[in-house]
């Protein structure tokens, strides 16, 4: 049985690389990504699981990293916005369709959209897109732009 008390070194698989980090069991994955690995793409917006700005992808599914303990993430495959390296179709779509203004919620939305495409390689029905994206809040845009960007991600896959 695994048991962690006090500060412990664990290995996290982030963006295709193993990373050793020293954590307290109560440390949130969000804080460890940001403060130990310098991966500040995941943003704290509420630290209560309500806004989605800290969303990363764990084993192919979106996860709010403020609701995951770093110790729990051991043995799982974690992808952050930095791991997309600017090559994910959704990143280009967001730029083209003006799907952000201040940019703070953007990483979280990008990761939800990217996970959506991982799980649904072909464009799902609109209600599925909505369900997935309702996990996140954007305060700047009208959401119309984000919706358009998701459509763009599917329609311009080959580009």
């Amino acid at each position: 049985m695994v048991r962690y008390e006090g500060k412990t070194v664990i290995t996290l698989n982030v963006n295709g690389q193993p990373h050793e980090v020293m954590v307290r069991p109560a440390d949130l994955l969000l804080d460890v990504l940001r403060e130990q690995l310098g991966l500040t793409g995941a943003k704290p917006g509420c630290k209560n699981g309500d806004c989605g700005a800290c969303t990363v992808i764990i084993d192919g599914w979106p996860a709010k990293s403020c609701l995951v303990l770093a110790v729990e993430a051991e043995g799982h495959v974690i992808l952050t916005v930095e791991g997309l390296e600017g090559k994910a179709p959704i990143q280009k779509s967001f730029v083209k369709d003006n799907a952000f203004q201040c940019g703070y919620c953007t990483s979280g939305f990008l990761m939800v959209c990217h996970a959506l495409q991982m799980q649904h390689p072909d464009m799902p029905e609109e209600h599925v897109i909505e369900e997935w994206l309702q996990s996140n809040i954007c305060r700047c845009t009208s959401y119309q732009e984000i919706r358009r960007a998701v459509h763009g991600m599917y329609n311009n896959k080959g580009l």
């Binding site: 403060e35 730029v95 003006n98 990008l110």
Partner: peptide, 22 residues
């Protein structure tokens, strides 16, 4: 496109609390 667009979709754009905390 917005001048800062690519910085924002790649998380190169840094906000106050993104600065190193060490």
């Amino acid at each position: 496109w917005r001048k800062e667009a690519w910085d924002k979709v790649t998380a190169i754009a840094k906000y106050t609390d993104d600065l190193p905390a060490t």
